[in-house]
Design a protein around this nucleic acid. Sequence first.
DNA 1: TGTACATCAGTGAACGCGCGTTCACTGATGTAC
DNA 2: TGTACATCAGTGAACGCGCGTTCACTGATGTAC
Lengths: 238, 238
Amino acid sequence: MTTTGSKGRRERLRAETTAEIKKVALALMASGGPDAITLRAIAREMGMTANAIYGYFATRDDLVTTLINDVYTALADAVDAAWEAAPAADPAIRITAWATAFRTWALVNPEGFRLVYGDPVPGYHAPEGGPAPDAARRVCTGLTALAAAAWPHARHLYEDSAFGWSDFDPGLLDKVRPAFPDLPPAAVALALRIWGHLHGLVSLEVYGHMHTQTTSPEKLFEEELAQLVRMLGVPRPS
Amino acid sequence: MTTTGSKGRRERLRAETTAEIKKVALALMASGGPDAITLRAIAREMGMTANAIYGYFATRDDLVTTLINDVYTALADAVDAAWEAAPAADPAIRITAWATAFRTWALVNPEGFRLVYGDPVPGYHAPEGGPAPDAARRVCTGLTALAAAAWPHARHLYEDSAFGWSDFDPGLLDKVRPAFPDLPPAAVALALRIWGHLHGLVSLEVYGHMHTQTTSPEKLFEEELAQLVRMLGVPRPS
DNA sequence: TGTACATCAGTGAACGCGCGTTCACTGATGTAC
DNA sequence: TGTACATCAGTGAACGCGCGTTCACTGATGTAC
């Protein structure tokens, strides 16, 4: 009991420090851009020496990799949760909830958004070879679920779609087709297009380009969603 | 004659070297990311010493500022030219031409796209205070022209738009309202939304995220444009 | 055409900086008897 | 409960690197008479 308790304590301290390193790294990125993630700056901020961090991460690239995975997972959690929380019977509300969660998360965690979707961190070399992180798959599946929810109402718009299965990455299809067996290629293309719409508005906002145009980016995003739902022919939320 | 000729020659050499510095800087960014733009790397590539560059640019930030302006201007030139080259009488063709030029330019100059719309270059501090570059204004005006061309056909879709003039940046309105005196706020919001759509698809592609999903990003963009034109109610190109 | 001077592109050495990473270490915390 | 040992988080000095920038300079090109 005491033994495991003590052990647990060390482990807890260790986990706390690890968490703080990551937190500080994200905060540094938030204030100074991606190149501000340096071991020395993190250590400075935490009142440690730089090499102390080597007790927690083997290398700076390791830290950045962990950061990206964590952040991507947080995003996936956020959009999945919003989707699940919305009533399954009302696709318009579900779609709106997913997209709103996406934007909200990005605005609350702009560093995270940049880390995942923006330029790679200077000097960082991602571990190559490995499959796309699980979180990427989840976001992608969520997007497809969104298109699938709208599809029964929207399919008539895309009957002349030029897309076939061969237009997609096999890795994507491996995930999508089992989960949504009835979905045609045109619906997957629609999912990607919707992704583009949302990503564009959100990234312009995160990168500060919207700010010089409109004082109401939120209103713009709401209008986007209303029009998206209308365009898809999904019954609007009551 | 000889005098001015000689003078002209020196100036020409100077201009050539300046152009080469910029070209090399962009090439470095293309191959190594934004943080690869270093005076020493440029000099190395050109077979000079790093400080020789100080004969052409007062400072590294100066070089980057020039780079951004150049690149942004090239983008504005490209989309403006495509717009002008398309028949004014056919809004669908014009809109498609503008958007296609936007995507094409971005794919041919991915470094440029990142420079203009992506993360700021590490260590770079933009000269503050000054107004947005002329090129930004031109791209923005082009986008509004796009919405204006579609507006007669699309206006009925946006009669319940929640946008008013107060939702926009005064600086934007100063440019837009004189050029398009009959355009309502809802049309400006539409222009920003279209910007978002295009920017999203293009930036996902430029940043390599589309590549893991579809093997036909071009087809996806074409479908986007076809649907955009359809959604706006613009008569489709014959 | 020839000479004396001005211009100016580029050199080479040096500066101070922050970086990732390595090394041998210290001192506190936890473990075993 | 007390002692001897193992663990391990963190230290502090050092390394080699590439960076932006400064300085005094050289040598070729262009200019004026």
